[in-house]
Computed example of a mutant assay.
Amino acid sequence: MGLADALLDLQDLTRRLRRECPWDREQTAQTIVPHTVEEAYEVADAALAVDDDKLVDELGDLLFQVYFLALLLEERDAGDLETVSRRVHAKLVRRHPHVFGDAEARTAERVRHRWEAIKTEQEGRQGIFHDVPGSLPALLHARKVQRRAAAVGYDWPDLDGPLAKIDEELAELRWSLARSGRPAPETEPDAAVVAEVGDLLFTVVNLARFVNVDPELALRATSRRFVRRVELAEALAADAGEAWTELSLEYKERWYEQAKGDLADGGDAVPRG
């Protein structure tokens, strides 16, 4: 069975599920989209884990989401899967004149600059921060905003800029914390501290963008490493007859460092921006 047959079979399956499955019949774009976002993150996890079999599986789940949402468009006479496919095909051809036309772009950076120019000049997008979805996770939203600013030349000339800015923002946060102190648990934080933490996070995202690291994926990878290390530290302590919850912070840290060494998880893929 070829690619065309496989894609048509999936389309037929999507239509049948929409007709015959009680759950699928009830769905709308609003109820499906959270699943779409979830599937996209699962694709990212599989890719970062370099798990090809899982990536094949998760890409299938995400592809089904595309088919289902396109079917909902068709039901509203607002488009269909063919419309979706032809529109993205035309868009990609239009945005790659260095491939399909006479334009030249010999570097990835030049391609990105031309991409932004085409969006403005040919697609009628207005303003520096056009089409930045408010629904993006905060780290990705910050990176996209920064990319938009960089596209019009508002960016650091070199790595020294964002590194120095991190030092500056961290100093301002320390000053605000010195004035307000640490708040009691479950109480509202000082407004100045909130602002300074936001500034520091925004600047760290800018540094990540500068070194081609995707901040969202990098933070998720770090969270996964932390979970693995703490779970192993707890297991190591238990094997030694010690209850993790009863250990002092000093002894927890010792087990954590041993777990960190045992895992030696430097093999994680580097999330790129």
Rank of each mutant, 00 (worst) to 15 (best):
E39W: 06
E39K: 11
A40W: 06
A40D: 06
V43A: 01
A44G: 03
D45S: 01
A47Y: 13
L48E: 15
D51A: 14
L55N: 03
L55F: 06
V56K: 11
V56E: 10
D57K: 13
L59T: 12
G60H: 12
D61N: 14
L62S: 00
L62H: 14
L62G: 01
L62R: 07
F64M: 10
Q65K: 04
V66C: 10
Y67N: 12
L69G: 02
L71A: 11
L71I: 01
L72A: 00
L72W: 10
L73S: 06
A78W: 09
D80A: 03
D80E: 09
D80M: 08
V88N: 01
V88W: 03
A90V: 09
V93A: 02
R94I: 01
R95D: 00
H98L: 05
H98D: 15
F100T: 03
G101M: 01
D102G: 00
A103E: 06
E104H: 15
E104W: 11
R106W: 13
T107L: 03
R110S: 04
H113I: 13
R114A: 02
W115Y: 15
W115A: 00
E116F: 12
A117P: 12
A117N: 14
I118Y: 03
K119N: 14
T120G: 05
E123W: 09
E123Q: 14
E123M: 13
G124V: 04
R125A: 02
R125G: 00
Q126V: 07
D131G: 05
P133R: 01
P133Q: 02
G134E: 15
S135R: 10
